[in-house]
Amino acid sequence: MQNGRLRSALARGRWVLVALVALTVVEYAVALVMKSGNLPWMIIMNLVDAVLILYYFMHIAQLWRKEE
């Protein structure tokens, strides 16, 4: 039971990393393709990156969740 929870949490972490890496690769590709005006797209993708890390890695929801 305990072990299963741990394993699913670790798996979630891996998926978050996959998403982050994928986003970074997309950013890089966008920068290669769009020679000008890519700033808004970068900001949007960065915000998605940040939300993923804040929510899944940093557990920001702890702040407003009631304490057990």
Partner: peptide, 16 residues
């Protein structure tokens, strides 16, 4: 520190 880099990286390397 990672989140900060996520913003710094494109700011220095990618934006056009």
């Amino acid at each position: 520190v990672d989140v900060a880099w996520v913003f710094i990286y494109p700011t220095l390397y990618l934006v056009t």
